[in-house]
Design a binder for these strands. Sequence first.
DNA 1: TTCTCATACTGCACTCCGCAGTATTTCCGA
DNA 2: TCGGAAATACTGCGGAGTGCAGTATGAGAA
Lengths: 216, 216
Amino acid sequence: MPTVPPPEPSRQGGRSATAFALLGLLSLRPWTTYELARQVRRSLNWFWPRAERQLYDEPKRLVAGGLATAAKEHTGMRPRTVYKITPLGRHALKRWLDEPAAARTSEFEAMLKVFFADAGSLAQLVTTLSAIQHEATDRLAELAVLTGQALAADAPFPKRLHLGALTVRLHVEQEEAIARWAGWALDQVSGWKAADDPGAWDYQGVLRDLATRASG
Amino acid sequence: MPTVPPPEPSRQGGRSATAFALLGLLSLRPWTTYELARQVRRSLNWFWPRAERQLYDEPKRLVAGGLATAAKEHTGMRPRTVYKITPLGRHALKRWLDEPAAARTSEFEAMLKVFFADAGSLAQLVTTLSAIQHEATDRLAELAVLTGQALAADAPFPKRLHLGALTVRLHVEQEEAIARWAGWALDQVSGWKAADDPGAWDYQGVLRDLATRASG
DNA sequence: TTCTCATACTGCACTCCGCAGTATTTCCGA
DNA sequence: TCGGAAATACTGCGGAGTGCAGTATGAGAA
């Protein structure tokens, strides 16, 4: 038996997940690029963050592939482009749902600083941990606002709230987990002598606990 | 008075966080690029994933900036490069710890599929949720192995285990949170009529609950 | 009427990635 | 002891994605 060459599935016609993210939004209604950018920032940013710059290029590729159409419109002298999904686009979207998704990845520079904290001072470590905690509580506040808006009577897509409820719940739990962890970590390091000297802190006990939790 | 030009702090001499990730490893001991790549895969991959390709280019930039030195060695005919941190490199690493870290971001394509699940079938949604759950439990198993290895008597950096304990604990809790969420989500959708029709499911109740949790 | 903010983009340089390609060495089993 | 697989040790290329700067017009508020 050969050892695992399952070659990373090479997506739907070679299109990126970003393409399908935008196609997904286009399946709800037509948008201008600017609106698309705002919507990505509001919702998709939580699990598929992309720079605004990208959001001006990607729809052009969708049009080139026949998954969307572009209509040039005007607001006075100012031109704008409105994108609309095609039947081919809807079909591609459905098929994309069947393909295995890429593995989750996250970039967390602050954890890099925690991991290499022994190159600096205990004060630096405490500052980094506090910043992590702040970021998490800020995001929780943002999620609260978002959820409130979604519940308002004039919210944009009432027929899709069930999916919003699923996704938002994950993000709230993630942020809660991070905030809790940061609080715990701050508590633990308060007993350390230095960033490279945990004093009497029982890290072995913590690790043993994690080893069993993770395998159970 | 001008409005907000606090220009994003433009990292330590314009170097990327990836540069400091490798510099952090080099602060522990000298490594060859290949070893560096393996170590990044084993540890940093959890919070700072980078492709192997990148890890062959980045050390060259460190050398160009005087933060590391490169020594050409040989294993028989096969050449290899060993990188070593310089005093300037250690200094830069310390100063990097003082700068605010970039915001956390995560790419989670499967959640994109959950969010746009109403473009497809309920079966597709269930498959996606199961895959998410599997990925989380796989990672928990991986973390258990890693933790076990770290506790072994001949583990590589015994003086740094306290930092490992902090970081691993976050990852375990994150994966647990995702696995729990996926289980809950599978349970909820089992009562749905279709991906675009949640039947009698009380998503409003879920959202109201989240709104208060997130703001509390 | 002036100023600010929102709208609506493009170009450029750079980082980073995936893939393919090219060697050599080491190890393990037949 | 010989052969093949896996580990070691890289480079080149094209494309995705980013951040920043730059260029307009329109709408609303002071």
